[in-house]
Amino acid sequence: MPLPPSHRDLEINPEDLTFGQRIGMGSFGEVYRGTWRGTNVAIKHFHDQNLSPVTIREFRDEVLIMSKLRHPNIVLFLGAVTQKNQLAIVTQYMTRGSLFRMLHRNKEVVLDPRRRLNMALDIAKGMEYLHNCKPVLVHRDLKSPNLLVDKDWTVKVCDFGLSRFKNNTYLTAATQNGSPAWMAPETLKGEPCDEKSDVFSFGVILYELVTGKEPWEELNPMQVVGVVGFSGRRMDLPTDLDPAVTNLIQSCWATNPKERPSFTQILATMNTWSELRPTAAVLEAQRAKAPQRNAAQ
């Protein structure tokens, strides 16, 4: 599946790649740490048996989209392997892994309120860049597993497999893909959506940053579709959150997409904050991890 002639310089010879340990997996295939021309990279390798026409089209779309993106809060695309049965996307390697893993699986990491705010700002800056592309680029799968953290604690948006340029007013939603716990109600219902669907997902990520909880952890994906998409429910926000944080999350979760703020407005709001203070429960849990605190500073 060769790329268009104008993008041939993005093609990587698979013989130039060295695969290391597997660092992630999904329905598409697996992600490995590796090396390319002496540089540490991440290699997103697609399973041979999953190479349906739809998968191949999404791979091509992802490559063409990522090749256009240059921003400090977007994972840097380096190239792609396009030979039959060897499809892979090669990006910069992000040392600290995903934000999801950091918040919900790595029990040793301590994130102070200032760092949590910087992470939220990084995500919003990356998304503001995408939404100001011409045409607008809607991510459609914004979630903490698709946010990667480098050695300097900078957060970068990745995984553009479901992303689309918004050439018209709306995009058609595809409910069979993506992760319901982060998705906007209009997306879950299969209705037309736009960049404000990403804003709803950002509200869920803010929820994770301040509560330390996985979204809708007590429900399975189909139940989330029902309660968020069709019953209009939202996750309960702890009463000990800063009212400004509560207000921003609730505005991101507005049922009417037009009532949700843009990322430009979100940044303007968060830039007035000095920290993103999590709940007392999160702070108490972090104090209990004090012996490991130095490792995260």
Rank of each mutant, 00 (worst) to 15 (best):
P14I: 00
V109E: 05
V245G: 02
D141E: 01
P180C: 01
F46K: 12
R287P: 01
R96Q: 12
Q265S: 04
Q265L: 02
A290H: 09
L206G: 06
S201N: 01
V204W: 05
D150Q: 03
S262A: 01
H71T: 00
A124V: 00
R22C: 07
P185Y: 04
F202I: 01
P261E: 03
Q21P: 05
D16R: 04
S201V: 01
V138Q: 03
A281N: 13
S67C: 12
Q292E: 14
R8E: 11
V224W: 10
T211D: 07
L103K: 04
D16H: 08
N40F: 11
G38I: 05
E214M: 14
P135V: 04
G24M: 13
K258Y: 09
S27V: 14
F202C: 02
V90H: 00
D242A: 04
F19Q: 00
S52K: 10
G29I: 01
D159M: 06
P14W: 07
E62K: 13
T82I: 07
F200V: 03
W273L: 04
K143C: 03
H131S: 02
C252G: 03
L162F: 11
S163C: 11
S274K: 14
L17D: 00
L248K: 01
P72R: 13
L206C: 04
G178T: 05
S197R: 10
T169E: 13
K189S: 07
W36P: 04
Y32G: 00
Y207F: 14
K196F: 08
D152M: 07
L137E: 04
L209G: 08
P53N: 09
M66K: 15
Q292W: 15
R164D: 08
T154V: 12
N118H: 11
G79S: 06
A296H: 08
M1S: 06
A124G: 00
S27P: 10
L99H: 05
P257Q: 03
A288G: 12
L111A: 07
I205S: 02
K258D: 09
I123H: 00
T187V: 14
Q265H: 07
C252I: 06
D150K: 00
P14D: 03
N271M: 07
D198K: 06
T18I: 10
T255F: 08
F202T: 03
R101N: 15
V41Y: 08
S231T: 06
G126M: 04
E62C: 14
M102I: 15
C158T: 13
G178S: 04
T172D: 10
A244R: 13
P261L: 02
M119V: 10
I249P: 05
T55A: 15
T91E: 05
W273G: 02
